[in-house]
């Protein structure tokens, strides 16, 4: 398989679900993807479902309420809105549509009754979250145009993402009829359609790559569509390919380095040179391991994107840098923008 960066089918996707092993930076990548997809005058919605306020941290703003609000302006115009879905609030909002709970609703929430109900059926929580996401995808303005060109969900980590999206299974635990049931049928249609893709964020390390490959298989088995595998924190390879193998085995030609340096008039003490050699060996081991990890991903992923490592860490400005990297690899939302 020869993965391309962003095949046309992904531009037609409306619901982008972003997952990844813990610690791979999925929230950051989801935020960068929301920015990239909003570029050139589009509007995207970035949704958080785990109640961690990770989006607020990445965008360096106050904690998000359960309310869609503008959080950033995209490159070339366009905007990103953000929403932190709180499953308890979503359930309450839901119940309010069908029953008038009034003050009792708030009291019950304080007592933990709502949390209890969502705990009783873990699937209910997921149904509420995906249901809200679906509503945002389907919402249209007065002219009948979608309010959002794309909705990006910062989803639970790889270990949980298939369960999260497998609404059919969750529904089988719940009542066979009733309001949530009928809404969920729409969610099932959306998540199993070409309008949804599940992107997996990984690092070029053994464990995250293994988990990514396992999850790709699980997604396909559950009839969910894998989108791009996004390799985060790509670091430069300085050593020429031909030198990597030997260096990784500890064979670094210190003499050649010394004479090379000397040719530029740089003379280093022997212990400094020893340190450089040791660093070079570690660099080569890393490069070799990363190349192997990349090979495993290429063999399984239909689409592969890369995002650079940020030496100074992630801040708001650097999110744009990551978004630009995604745009440069062809990331786009397909909807036509008419002025």
């Amino acid at each position: 398989m020869h993965p391309s960066g962003w095949p046309p089918a992904l531009s037609a996707v409306r619901l982008h679900v972003v997952s990844g092993k813990g610690g791979t930076g999925k929230t950051t990548v989801a935020a960068a993807l929301a920015l990239a997809l909003a570029s050139s005058g589009r509007r995207t919605l970035l949704i958080e479902v785990e109640g961690r306020q990770g989006i607020a941290q990445v965008f360096d703003t106050a904690p998000l309420p359960y309310e869609e609000r503008r959080i950033a302006v995209a490159p070339g115009g366009g905007e990103v809105r953000a929403l932190a879905i709180d499953p308890e609030a979503a359930l309450l909002e839901y119940l309010e549509m069908f029953y008038r709970l009034g003050v009792a609703g708030r009291t019950l929430r304080k007592m933990g009754a709502i949390e209890f109900a969502t705990t009783l059926a873990p699937g209910l929580r997921d149904v509420l979250l995906t249901g809200k996401a679906k509503e945002c995808v389907a919402r249209v303005d007065r002219d009948g145009r979608p309010v959002y060109d794309a909705v990006i969900v910062d989803a639970p980590p790889t270990g949980r993402v298939v369960t999260f999206l497998d609404v059919t299974k969750a529904m089988s635990e719940l009542a066979r009829s009733g309001p949530i049931h009928s809404q969920s049928e729409g969610v099932v249609r959306l998540v199993h359609s070409p309008r949804t893709a599940v992107h997996l964020v990984t690092l070029l390390e053994d464990l995250p790559v293994t988990e990514t490959l396992d999850t790709l298989a699980d997604l396909r088995a559950a009839d969910l569509r894998p989108g791009a595998v996004i390799v985060n924190r790509m670091r430069p390879q300085w050593l020429p390919d031909r030198s990597v193998g030997a260096a990784a085995d500890g064979r670094v030609d210190a003499g050649r380095i010394r004479s090379g340096l000397a040719s530029a008039g740089v003379n280093l003490a022997p212990e400094v040179l020893d340190g450089l050699v040791a660093e070079t060996v570690e660099h080569a081991v890393r490069v070799e391991a990363e190349a192997a990890a990349m090979g495993r991903l290429r063999a399984s992923a239909a689409s592969l994107l890369q995002v650079p490592n940020l030496v100074d860490g992630v801040d708001l400005g650097s999110l744009y840098e990551l978004a630009d990297a995604l745009l440069a690899q062809g990331v786009s939302a397909g909807t036509e923008v008419t002025a």
């Binding site: 430069p236 300085w238 050593l239 020429p240 030198s243 030609d253 050649r256 380095i257 004479s259 090379g260 340096l261 040719s263 530029a264 450089l276 050699v277 660093e279 070079t280 660099h283």
Partner: peptide
């Protein structure tokens, strides 16, 4: 003119 030495300095 000395790519190996340059690479070593940059990775350092």
């Amino acid at each position: 003119g000395a790519p190996l030495a340059a690479a070593v300095l940059r990775l350092h």
